[in-house]
Structures are given as C-alpha cells and as structure tokens.
Design a binder for these strands. Structure first.
Lengths: 154, 154
DNA sequence: CAGCAATCGTCAGTGCGCTGAGTATCTGGA
DNA sequence: TCCAGATACTCAGCGCACTGACGATTGCTG
C-alpha cells in the first residue's frame, strides 16, 4: 500500500552498486586481497611510512576498521608496522617487497575490472558518474564537520 | 610512484557513498532500524506473506544475510515468521502492527533524508545519478547470471 | 615542571555481506 | 513408489564498518 520504490533511494542504490562491484572484484581481481586492502596498499605506495590513522583518513576508514585491515595485511606479509621513534603513540606503516609486488599486480587487474564495470557508460557518462557521486559524498561529509577550515583560530 | 588515484575507482567511490549515507541515516532517520532493515519492511508492506528467500531477492540480500536481518527484525517485534503449510521448506514473513507503524514513521524520515542527501544535485542531475548507478549495477548483475530469461528450456 | 587535555591505538559490541557445507523438505521421473 | 536432484533454510568462517570505552603517550599551560 504505502510501500516506497527503493530504486529512488540513493542508499539502497549505493549498497547494490557496492555488491555488484564486490562480485566483479572477486572474479576479476583477487579473492585474497579486498578492495579496501588494495586502497591501503595504494596509499602506502604513494606515501610510504605514513601512520595508521592518516592512512585510514586517506582511504576513508575509521580508526577501528583501519586497524583490522592493517592487521590482516601484516598477517599476510604485505605490510610492516613500527612504532614512531618521534611519537610513541603512532605506528608507521610500510610496504614489504611482497606488498609492492601485490600492488603492481592488482593495479593492472583493477584497471581491467574498471573497464568492464563501466562498460555500459560512455566516456562523458563516466565523468558524470564520478563527479555526481563525489559531489554527493563530499557534501554529506561536510555535514559532519561543518567548515573545519574556517575554524583555524578557535 | 606507481600509485593510482582512488577517485577514478568506482568501487572506492561506491564505498564512500555508502559511508556518507550511513552517517546521514543514523542522524536523520534511525539508530535502531538500519537501511537494509527498512528495505525488508518496505518489501513486506508491498507484498505481505512473502517467503524469506524472495524478500532477500527483492532487496538484494543473499540467503545468509537476509536470515540475520530477519532474525533481528523478529527479535524487535517488527516481523512474524511462520512455516508455509503448503511447503515445509519455506518461512512466510509478515509485518506486525509495530512493524507497520515503524515503516510509516521511517518512510517520512527517509524522504526527508534523501532530500538532504541529494541536495547538491539539481533535478536533472538526480535523475542522471539514479540511472547511471542503476545501469552499471544491472550490467554487473547480468555478468553473474548471463541471460537467464533465454534459458527457459534447458 | 606538574598536571591535564588532546591524540593514537586497542578492545568489545553490533550489524551488513559473502561463500561453502550441512539438514530438511519437496518434486519429478524411472 | 521410491529415489535423485532441486530448493529453503541454518551454521561456521571471513571480512568490512561504526560507536563507545579504555590505556598509553604526548604536549601545552599554568
């Protein structure tokens, strides 16, 4: 009766999009390393020796989740974790050779997968796809921390 | 060095979009009932007495996950579950009065939340947003079960 | 310089999401 | 009629994701 069409609910669509992606990732990229794990490796390729919290911030994972992801990557030998001698609260993260090799292999495969995933869209549509999602996400993120940059002098 | 821009990875963006949505849902809709739980309630408003597997199919949850979601909804008194007298393998699901009330309340709130969530987009952009995501998702889903409808005579 | 607030990380608890293995039930064909 | 395959559900195991509470370390300030 008063039921709603879930296809007009962005949250529902976001979930389905992620599921579809997860499926494709598993078949085309890796069953070992997940997409968030790849994101962590990728961040550490760009900025080796980053601390755990900052890595989490770069890839969009909270302190608890990044801890779990990192511990799995360490368990599998892709990462090293050492205490920061300058600041005993921090752990500094660095890729192992194995981790670097894994990142190289996965970079190729994810590129292929993204091609397949985005195949239904034209070039302009892909650009639109990215920018629409990013605008919505960024706006929602700012609702959490309203105008941090304007409060540099508290 | 060989690091990639994660913002050109649809999987990464999908995850961030869902996170942003989750955040807004918690603050604007409910901390009790989650978005997938609402999807289940909504499906049963439209089609009361559906069996568990079919509900899962409607909202896009596999057999294991729908079982957990349903059990939580039952525990909180929103759902009833009875064996199908016609087919002893099935469980038939039905909303309680409490479940119906919850659905009504959440319908209003989700509508408000979607307004806020999509606020950065114009009307045409919203339409585009929905259709782009849906086209990508549908295409990926078909890679799993290629042309089921053409195999009606195996 | 002593103490207190901020910061980094861990842990417990809850919930979503998937696969693979196992059980009960049903259905169609030899 | 009986059994072999399909179907519905459960359970165990893994992984992502968040909050709130906690302990350790640091750094600022009185």
């Amino acid at each position: 009766m008063a039921a709603v069409d879930l296809n007009s609910h962005p949250g529902h669509l976001a979930r389905r999009l992620q599921q579809a992606h997860h499926l494709l990732w598993n078949t085309m990229v890796s069953e070992e390393i997940t997409s968030p794990q790849f994101a962590v490796l990728n961040t550490l390729v760009a900025e080796p020796g980053l601390d755990q919290r900052t890595v989490g911030e770069r890839v969009g994972l909270d302190r608890s989740t990044i801890a779990e992801v990192v511990s799995r990557l360490i368990r599998r030998g892709y990462l090293d974790k050492v205490r920061d001698p300058q600041d005993g609260r921090r752990y500094l993260l660095r890729l192992t050779d194995e981790g670097l090799r894994a990142h190289r292999k996965l970079t190729v495969r994810t590129a292929r997968m993204n091609q397949v995933f985005l195949a239904p869209l034209s070039a302009e549509e892909r650009t639109l796809f990215f920018s629409l999602i990013q605008r919505v996400t960024d706006a929602a993120d700012e609702l959490r921390s309203p105008a941090d940059d304007l409060v540099a002098h508290p």
